[in-house]
């Protein structure tokens, strides 16, 4: 079976995905939800910083940089046509 679920940190630069769920055990998750990282929202990885971390993402019409530790809280689906 082809893997369709990734966490956001695995999303390659320039590709898009859809948020599937978010790990609510971390206190940061509430803030991510408030910022619009809710299931079903499309998200695009824009680029990684020169030193590899953080990465900027485009969501709901704005850009936000997340570190790997935060991006790993978010699970996404990458549809074949989006990849």
């Amino acid at each position: 079976m082809v893997k369709t679920t990734y966490n956001l940190a695995e999303l390659p630069e320039g590709s898009s995905g859809t948020i599937r769920d978010i790990d609510t055990s971390s206190p940061t998750s509430q803030r991510l939800l408030d910022l619009g990282f809710v299931p079903g929202t499309p998200i695009r990885a824009i680029q990684k910083a020169p030193l590899g971390d953080p990465t900027t993402f485009q969501i709901r019409g704005y850009q936000v940089g997340l570190r790997k530790t935060e991006a790993e809280l978010i699970n996404i689906e990458i549809k074949p046509d989006e990849k």
Binding site: P54, Y62, G65
Partner: peptide
Amino acid sequence: KTDGNSPFLLEM
């Protein structure tokens, strides 16, 4: 440092 006092969300 805890997750609570340093969430990293850098708006561009």
